[in-house]
Write a protein that binds this DNA or RNA. Structure first.
Lengths: 150, 150
DNA sequence: ATTACTATCATGGGATTTCATGGTATTCAA
DNA sequence: TTGAATACCATGAAATCCCATGATAGTAAT
């Protein structure tokens, strides 16, 4: 499970350290790295382990082959996503176009969101997170767990 | 189930002993530690076992993917939470920013709340508990158990 | 009942490892 | 051969491990 937030340096060569916690989550034994694609919802990147893509694939295969949404997802996620493997110190090299898409400049913020994560420019995320906190506070009554506590 | 309260020392390295009976509750076999995040309801921390986060994840995945509140919750909970693993003596290292958020200074109070727990500065909790007692007294008629007697 | 023994806990200090990050060398392809 | 991508070291800071100590409570023995 991807948790917490960390801001790391993105150097001139496009190298970016993936937080150690995140590295521990991914990896299916076969491919040691992450998968990243531009979000179709804003100027940031989305990513996860190869497992996440497999889950999306399973989900899409349950949809009608000519469903507009299915085609759109396939284009938006599979076609756009890049497989980035770790170097010996746990970094990936982020392709320039992805860095540009997210407006990354010297620093990048990893946002853990459970099953997947996002990569933002620190400044962009800060203002975004502020409104998320506000929204969460206003709706906190909807966050009620069911069932008996353990 | 997290019960009772305990105040422990927070040393210069940020180490904090988790009460032994709390430790007995957490752990999913995989991860031996707790998960902690800043409450979006006040200057204190909330926490629980990894199971709690999994329950929240299940709850959120049942919501509409484009529900604004869902996205806000994901950011407020998953992104803000930290996985803190126990050392060999049952301590965790509490990140500085979390300690600051809760105004912790040398000591921290764990409050067991069943499924989850809270971490307060002892002084802040004392004044908060006072008003909570008052509130409980005024609402005691609402404390009626359902179901079969034990 | 009092005392001695033992186990569990919380806590402190020092040593060690991991992490993020910068730099240099090397390989590969255009 | 020139650029880009990749592999290989170096370093400081932070996190983690390991051992030692004191306190408390519970148990057993006298």
């Amino acid at each position: 499970m991807f948790l917490s937030t960390a801001t790391n340096a993105l150097d001139a060569k496009g190298r970016l350290s993936v937080p150690a916690d995140f590295r521990a989550v991914v990896g299916d034994g076969n491919f040691d790295g992450i998968v990243v694609w531009p979000s179709f919802d804003g100027a940031y990147l989305e990513g996860g382990g190869i497992r996440l893509l497999q889950d999306y694939q399973a989900l899409l295969e349950g949809m009608d082959p000519y469903d507009e949404a299915r085609i759109a997802f396939e284009r938006a996620i599979f076609a756009e996503s890049r497989r980035l493997s770790f170097d010996s110190t746990g970094r990936v090299t982020l392709p320039k176009d992805l860095a540009e898409y997210a407006g990354l400049n010297g620093r990048a913020t990893f946002i853990g969101l459970g099953r997947r994560f996002e990569i933002w420019s620190p400044e962009a995320y800060e203002s975004h997170a502020e409104s998320a906190r506000k929204m969460a506070r206003e709706n906190r009554h909807r966050l009620r767990l069911q069932g008996r506590p353990q």
